[in-house]
Design a protein around this nucleic acid. Structure first.
Lengths: 222, 222
DNA sequence: GTCTATAAGCAGATAGAC
DNA sequence: GTCTATCTGCTTATAGAC
């Protein structure tokens, strides 16, 4: 006898509209929000658990420690940035400065999109530990990419090149926190403004508006 | 009988070569160092007291709370910056951009001279409390000064002006932490490099090297 | 003003039942 | 995998002698 009437008359359950995040993902999301808002040391594992809808002790089935949560978060956030940066290195510059513009825009967008304070953590004392070596390593590689993108644009000594790359990084990271405050502003405009500023900052002989427009259009090809 | 042989044959004790800092000053110095190095929440009052050469409980004879120490520190650091900024506002620009250059240089020097992380604290969650309202207020006034120094340099909309001022602030604050890492670099050169970068960043039509040299020399008159 | 002693609470992490 | 219960240690801050 066919069992066709045992099959449900309605459509079988499909994925709910909101993705059914695993408990682990729920914890990461909660931690990202709280670490950003209140800072890492000030956020208790109890608060993270509560927001994730589980008990404090259950955290330790998914993560070895509080540090482990932070490290996972940081690595996951920095990874796309580095991937994009590496891709840019393999692409020729359509217009001189276009790749730099694109990378700064990408990074700033990453930072302002909800996790600004989190990425700003790279300069926090907590991240000095062994557990975060991989994260710091990634940040160093970012600095190298910036140097390689800037080098063809300006005749600079090695020291000046390093310095200017660090200035761009400082601008990106320093602006992230700032951007959150000015929520009044069109938040979408901030990453592009930072990218413009970075290009002007790097250009020793100035970067007039028309050349900047050229760079912007070149960056759209990347 | 004269007691002349009771008086010491050597010179009477004079003030020791290192200034005899009061206990309060000692605490502030210790806290500045530790808050900068390890972060505010991670620094215990015990550690501050130990470094200051007193017991933990004795702190509370000089300060009402741990927050009180931080607030005192922050206000003391930001005050000279604001004083200098206000003075600049009362002085005409010898060369367009000279005042901006001078202020950025001053602020960056303040930040890199040992207390970088401390000033970077302004964007930390801890400083959101009522106790730190005065500090936040000061920072806002700094932003206003930057706007007023930038406004005469470029024809900008109100929104763009605000944005560019925030970018300069972000650059200054973001670079501070960075500068510490590159101790290899001539640390003295960093503030001037940041000032150069700020001027280039602001200039919409570019700032060639010769004009920058002019600005630098103009800033020396301030 | 500095000390000893201690209060009162909360942190991160673990044990073990279900 | 999630829970309840709890351990252990450390935190800021206070009380009160000297």
């Amino acid at each position: 006898m066919p069992s066709h009437d045992l099959s449900p008359p309605v459509a079988p359950p499909v994925a709910p509209p909101v993705a059914p995040r695993s408990a682990r993902a729920e914890v990461l999301a909660a931690a990202a929000e709280l670490f950003s808002r209140d800072g890492y040391p000030a956020t208790t594992t109890r608060a993270v658990a509560e927001r994730a809808g589980i008990r404090q002790s259950t955290l330790y089935h998914h993560f070895a420690s509080k540090d482990d949560i932070l490290a996972t978060l940081l690595e996951g956030i920095v990874a796309p940035s580095l991937a994009y940066a590496q891709r840019l290195l393999d692409t020729p510059d359509p217009v001189p400065g276009a790749r730099l513009w694109a990378l700064v825009r990408f990074d700033t967008e990453l930072l302002v999109s909800g996790l600004s304070n989190l990425v700003a953590l790279h300069q926090l004392p907590e991240v000095r530990g062994e557990r975060f070596a991989a994260f710091r390593e990634t940040r160093c590689r970012k600095a190298v990419v910036y140097r390689e993108l800037i080098a063809p644009l300006e005749p600079l000594t090695e020291a000046d090149l390093r310095l200017r790359a660090e200035l761009v990084l400082g601008l990106v990271e320093g602006t992230a926190a700032v951007a959150r405050e000015c929520a009044e502003q069109d938040a979408a405009a901030v990453p592009e403004a930072v990218a413009d500023a970075a290009v002007r900052l790097v250009a020793g002989n100035g970067c007039p508006a028309d050349r900047l427009a050229l760079i912007r259009s070149g960056a759209r090809l990347l």
